[in-house]
Design a protein around this nucleic acid. Sequence first.
DNA 1: GATATATATTTCAAGCTTAAAGTATCTAGC
DNA 2: GCTAGATACTTTAAGCTTGAAATATATATC
Lengths: 151, 151
Amino acid sequence: MRETDLPHRRLRTWIRLLRMTRGMENHLREYLRVNHDTTLPRFDVMAALYRATGPMKMSELSRQLLVSNGNATAVVERLEKEGLARRVPGEGDRRVVLAELTDKGRELFAAQASEHRGEVDRLFSMLGHEELDALRDILHRVEEASDGQNG
Amino acid sequence: MRETDLPHRRLRTWIRLLRMTRGMENHLREYLRVNHDTTLPRFDVMAALYRATGPMKMSELSRQLLVSNGNATAVVERLEKEGLARRVPGEGDRRVVLAELTDKGRELFAAQASEHRGEVDRLFSMLGHEELDALRDILHRVEEASDGQNG
DNA sequence: GATATATATTTCAAGCTTAAAGTATCTAGC
DNA sequence: GCTAGATACTTTAAGCTTGAAATATATATC
């Protein structure tokens, strides 16, 4: 019967989920552009560097953001040009390059992030604890399964 | 108390959700590249044209995929160069351009899509009816709220 | 310690994506 | 039927993104 056609349901759900996240991303891109004159990738890189306890390996950065290492290089390079980030050679291993925010970068991001958080909160205001619990469980299941396959 | 900090939970959930969909997209991009020598945007455009009952307005295409109209033009142009899609002028309104798959495009997509569906099914094999129900409800809530704000 | 292999990053070419400007056409109001 | 503004699409410039090649360094094996 129709109710047990899991493959079909999974595909439909994936398409809807993707559409939803794209819509939200588009909204946040516009928000960052208009209110903070910045872009999503810049914001994501700055967020990762801001959260990090210290200078961060370029490879760690691209791993965290799930982007190619060439991409990480490019975005950090642009941030560097604007004086928001800097790259320093690694200490022990001379292949390594570490990235970190400048003071200017930290300050700017802190301001952007607090407003960004408010916007995300508004975007998801229709989700209460119950829905967030359900999402938490689902994401947990997905992550668990992916860990089993890859790492 | 911590349990009622909805803004924080919403932000965390959004970040995790985004990370999950990115991981899945990366997997599917790789899958399409290796197994079908194509890309995600090409696949998405072909899927939209395939599903449509007839030739599709360029504006409708970009609206459905949530991408800019310039983007739709670019991807369709590339598909056209490879003989997979074609553009024809609209009948009544001469500003309109309609896009559709060629026979070659339809045939190719049908083959790609059936395998793609299988891959999505494998990727989400950890989700059964219960989780899909929960996701359906959540997506419904989000869509409802977005409809209220925009359209 | 020389050589082979692995790892970390950058560079490169091609494609993707956006926002804004440009072109063509349509519709409304006069 | 003219004009003003709206709509549909394309073009353009800049930035984003990938995968692969290139560079530099580290590690392992002999």
